Computed example of a mutant assay.
Amino acid sequence: MRGALWRLFYRASLGDHAYQFLFRPGPADEVVSLDCETTGLDPKRDDIVAVAAVLIRGNRILTSSRFEALVRPDEAQPGAESIKVHRLRQRDVADAQPMRRVLPGLLRFIGGRPLVGYYIDFDVRMLDKYTMDLFEAKLPNRQIEVSALYYDRKYRDAPPGSTFDLRFASILADLGIPMLEAHDALNDAIMAGMAYLALRDMTSRGARIQRERFRGAPPPPTGA
């Protein structure tokens, strides 16, 4: 979790003060659901090939208020394994803008709003290496991890030996959310947004998700 002292440090040492707006809270009833498609799973070595963000205001996902872009990777190119996931080949992103040009527009769209997502910490770490180059700071936005909200509604206080299933498809199925075409940045952002709204509503009502009684070694929630 990105704490207050950490944010104060980066705000004080910001390399480009034009991005001070990121450190100012956004509207109280707004968050942004974010997803990145990448060339791999190593933020140090891999690059972003697509990014999408959609605004959530109150209980509505405003698909008309969205940001989406293909991105030409700086160094790492889509390989066979990543292409199987997002189906974006090198030629598909060859004419796209590099992230350093995409990033300012994305940041203006996000502002100081909290960021929602599934494995949102990975997406933010992918963006951080570009923000460090742009203004010498990491993204200060609060992160809301969908799998952690789901874990709390389904597995909190689960007995020892319970099996935890935190796969995105399982979360959507439990919440009755339709599965859009997966590993499309905009679709993934929309589905994460729908899961967030459903889980937030359950949390406000104190509702829980019924769990089955299986045995196994439980992994921790991804957003813990």
Rank of each mutant, 00 (worst) to 15 (best):
R2M: 13
A4D: 13
L14V: 07
L22H: 02
L22Q: 05
R24K: 15
G26R: 02
V31P: 02
V31C: 11
V32S: 03
S33A: 15
L34W: 07
E37W: 04
T38A: 07
T39R: 03
T39S: 08
G40R: 00
D42G: 01
P43R: 01
D46R: 00
D47Q: 00
D47A: 04
I48C: 05
A52D: 10
A53I: 06
A53K: 03
I56E: 02
S64H: 13
S64V: 10
S65K: 13
R66P: 06
A69P: 06
A76S: 14
A80D: 12
Q97N: 08
P98E: 06
R101F: 11
R101Y: 12
V102I: 07
L103M: 01
L103S: 02
P104M: 01
R108Q: 08
R108L: 07
G112K: 03
L115W: 05
L115G: 02
F122M: 09
D123I: 01
T131S: 07
D133W: 12
D133Q: 12
E136Q: 15
A137V: 06
K138F: 11
V146R: 02
Y150D: 00
D157I: 06
P160N: 04
S162F: 10
R167F: 09
R167C: 09
R167D: 09
F168T: 05
A173G: 12
P178V: 08
L180P: 08
H183E: 10
D184S: 13
A185R: 05
D188G: 09
M191G: 02
A192F: 04
A192Y: 02
M194Y: 08
Y196H: 05
D201R: 14
S204N: 11
S204P: 09
R205D: 14
G206P: 08
I209A: 01
I209C: 04
G216S: 04
P221S: 08
T222K: 13
A224T: 10
